[in-house]
Write a protein that binds this DNA or RNA. Structure first.
Lengths: 224, 224, 224, 224
DNA sequence: CATGAATGAGCGTTCATTCAT
DNA sequence: AATGAATGAACGCTCATTCAT
């Protein structure tokens, strides 16, 4: 047992261990998301999760304090994806306020599509979490939707959009993005992701765009 | 001792019993919806439900075969409210296609507001149901949204609305109606029901209305 | 409320009531025996019994204090049949000791065949009874087998039978009689009641009869 | 740290675990048999069983899928004892058909005496089992009684026994063997195992033996 | 680091029994 | 006499969690 303080985690063993741990965490998170979407949080036993991830039950507890923390981690994992992908997508869209809104919405939809397994958990199982967990999620949801909200606010302020309730517009975009995950039976099973995004973008923009700006965004308003 | 001849096979005892049973059912349904919204289906034990409804555990099983059936009944109860309230509201709106759509949307929102406790369960807990239960719900959701869908289709066919994907438009209206129940933390807590309905109606109509028809519906498009 | 002591239950109302009660008791006992044989004592709920007998649950408790008492009554009902049928059959067989034994065995078998439903309960469910109940049954079993035991003892004392252990011989006859009720899968399903009785009688007598007496009982020793 | 190369794929850990599991199974089976004989299958709760075996309820379910399976296992355990002990005893008896029958009967009685707790369950609780379980038991009972049946058939065919119904004779021997477990109150409490076996053997053989063979088997026909 | 046997609180459900009508 | 709604203790069973190895 070394008694010297080490400020640098430079021991190659330790590095390997960290890599291993990271890999395990991801493996467990993925397995958990997959099982929980299919069977719900309460429908997945720790044993089933261990089997799916090909580890022992005990090991799960080395990485997550308890089952609730695991759920929290799964949800946070999705929210982190928003935090990392949405701003990037917005920046890549350039300076045009409307293009940035469209890009933000598309990015939200893409994250949800990629994490379809876990995305529904946000709706379905958030009530299961501890108050602290719920607050954390709540804060993260506010944070991750901030770029979209900001883009909309900029659109209004720049005069590209009509004077709409920014909060409500954000809410609607998010609703539509999550609507893809809920992918309700109302929705034709034949409706593809690209169609969904394009059509919903067109619909929202045709309501939000200042009439005299519409001709600039024909490519967003037409869906063939 | 009845002195009047009755041709109906209605024993007064039996009638009283039926009333009592109906009352119990409603009492249990309400308690279940309230608790389940707060704690989720799995978070509510039958004992807790019995306590909330001030009856014994055993009695619940006289009215509902098991916990799943109780959830099913709670959900069906909401869907029945749609089935009874939405068509009425549409008829009361007269013959104008756009007014009928607005009335249908408002009716959906009202039912959800009245059953706010139970409405979220449709989203959150439908995965818990048996396949048969889920199919029944699915069919009922399709059926109860049919009046709205028909109203939108009529609007398109009469030329009041632009040529939009009817299915998707329905999906969006429903999403917005349920959005009131999910009433996400994104939504200002100060936004009142009337505001929500009016603003969402205005938003959707401003996207769907044929431009030359817009002036007829200023009262729906303006939200003060 | 009559204050005069009545030693005679001669009130016609009361008589009618007694008849009714007797009828109810028999109805319940029969239903209970039938259901319990099929599903076992624990497999029959009071509700199921009430349904089978077409009465209400509550009524059963007017006639039997509780479920255990009902089981006791069903078993006692069979034992009473032994007590009434076996001595009669023995007397009808005349004075010959061997004929009396054969008649006693046949009578035991007949009672078991007639009450096949309830007879198995003696074996299967006697452990369920209260100690007092079990003692009562035990005593009744000893009492009802007494005539058979006495017949065997007479046979030994009169020199018709070899000097066998009377207790054990009785045990064996009873075992064989109950063997018909248990009617194990070992037993060919084609073996009829008459065959069973005749063959078992022949077997036991061929072991018990004094050799020089055998020719007198050819009709009991031959089974075609 | 094993230094010897082992060609068997036997991990010492795994072996130890198997031993432990085997021990647990036996521990639970014994406790279950003991309690179930005293209180009947339905009279024994899983908690009571856990207490008796000094384990937790949950652990029982690691070894037996449910309560019914446990009962099945207890019964099968006895039947396996027949399957292993009866044929051995018969072979040890040599070639004489009558000696083989006597040995088979004695072996049946011995197994029942050793498993007195569990033996009664075959009679009392077989109705509790699932149809599949019952069929399995039925088949095993037929199989385990086959050696005895074969021995009797050989006795008849070799002319040692009179021309008796083999099936029925088997049934009677089995009935007598189980009679020791039921050990009815009719039976003197002072009758010892050896007496019982000897006397019952003598009784059956005196009925089944060809008269001219009897003198060869005086040691089986005399009981003290 | 990794295992999985072991725990026990808590669940959904049943059913003998009571009692107001 | 007869009903059946109502009770609640007790059951079989599950599963998150721990800990000796």
């Amino acid at each position: 047992m070394p008694t010297t303080a080490r400020s640098e985690p430079q021991d190659p063993n330790e590095a390997a261990r960290a890599v291993r741990a990271e890999w395990r965490t991801r493996q467990l998170l993925t397995a958990a998301a997959r099982l929980m979407e299919r069977d719900g949080f309460h429908g997945v036993s720790m044993q089933a999760l261990a089997d799916e991830a090909a580890v022992s039950v005990g090991l799960i507890y080395r990485y997550f304090g308890n089952k609730d923390e695991l759920l929290l981690a799964v949800i946070i994992n999705v929210l982190n994806a928003f935090a990392s992908q949405v701003p990037t997508a917005i920046e890549a869209a350039g300076d045009d306020p409307v293009e940035r809104i469209a890009a933000a919405f598309r990015a939200h939809c893409e994250v949800i599509d990629e994490h379809r397994h876990a995305a529904v958990l946000t709706y379905r199982e958030s009530g299961t979490l501890s108050p602290e967990g719920r607050n954390k999620i709540k804060q993260m949801e506010v944070d991750t939707s901030e770029p979209l909200r900001t883009a909309i606010r900029s659109g209004v302020e720049s005069g590209h959009l009509v004077d709409v309730d920014v909060q409500l517009a954000t809410h609607n975009f998010l609703l539509m993005a999550h609507g893809w995950a809920l992918k309700h039976w109302h929705l034709e099973r034949t409706l593809q992701f690209e169609d969904y995004v394009a059509k919903q973008t067109a619909l929202m923009l045709s309501a939000l765009l200042e009439p005299e700006r519409r001709h600039q965004y024909e490519h967003l308003l037409t869906t063939r």
